[in-house]
Amino acid sequence: MGAWYTCVFLATRRQRAARGAKGAVPSTPPPDLRGLQRDYLERIDAVALEAGAGIRYARSSHQELSLLIRSFVRDASGVDAPRMTLAELRAVTGAGQPFSAVADAVGRSYPAAFAAGAAPDQTAYAVPDAVEAASDVVRSWK
């Protein structure tokens, strides 16, 4: 029984280390970075339109924008950002990429994304500001 716990413990630690939480970022960009940026900018714009039309509440908008930023980073760099904590995002370095901007954009959305209420006016960080931050992260990626 003790061997099983040891095996599970070690297996989960290797997965965490493999995702590169504090390691260097792979420097190889995706084959079609411009296309990837275009796709994510369209998805970010769709969130803005849904929020503006009242189809999506602020909380949901912030959650989706955070996921889009993290997913873009994963697709553009290979860093498994959707599974990383904010502290892990802040610790990522390398390849001249704007990881501090990624962490800032995600971090600023945290209060709104995790707020108890769903009404659009319950957050100090407005959806248009979050959309702009997410778009800036995607556009600035090299």
Rank of each mutant, 00 (worst) to 15 (best):
G2P: 01
A3S: 15
W4E: 15
Y5S: 12
C7R: 15
F9I: 14
L10E: 15
R13W: 15
R14Y: 13
A18G: 13
R19H: 10
G20S: 05
A21C: 13
G23I: 06
A24V: 10
P26E: 02
T28D: 03
T28G: 00
P29R: 13
P31R: 13
L33S: 08
L36P: 05
R38D: 12
D39N: 11
D39K: 09
E42K: 12
E42Y: 02
R43M: 11
A46R: 08
A46C: 12
A46T: 11
V47T: 08
V47I: 11
L49M: 14
L49C: 13
G52C: 12
G54Q: 08
G54P: 07
A58M: 12
S60K: 11
S60Q: 13
S61A: 14
S61D: 10
Q63D: 04
E64P: 14
S71I: 07
F72L: 10
V73K: 04
D75L: 01
D75H: 04
D75G: 02
A76P: 05
A76Q: 01
S77Q: 00
S77D: 00
G78H: 05
R83W: 13
M84Q: 12
M84H: 04
M84V: 02
A87L: 13
L89A: 06
A91F: 06
A91W: 08
V92A: 07
G94V: 02
G94T: 00
A95Q: 04
G96Y: 03
Q97M: 11
Q97S: 06
A101I: 04
A103Y: 02
D104L: 03
A105Y: 00
G107N: 05
R108K: 12
S109P: 09
S109A: 14
F114D: 00
A116Y: 11
T123A: 14
T123G: 06
T123V: 12
Y125A: 11
V127T: 07
V127A: 03
V127D: 04
P128M: 01
D129N: 05
D129E: 11
V131Q: 05
S135R: 04
S135P: 12
D136M: 08
D136P: 08
D136F: 07
D136Q: 10
W141T: 04
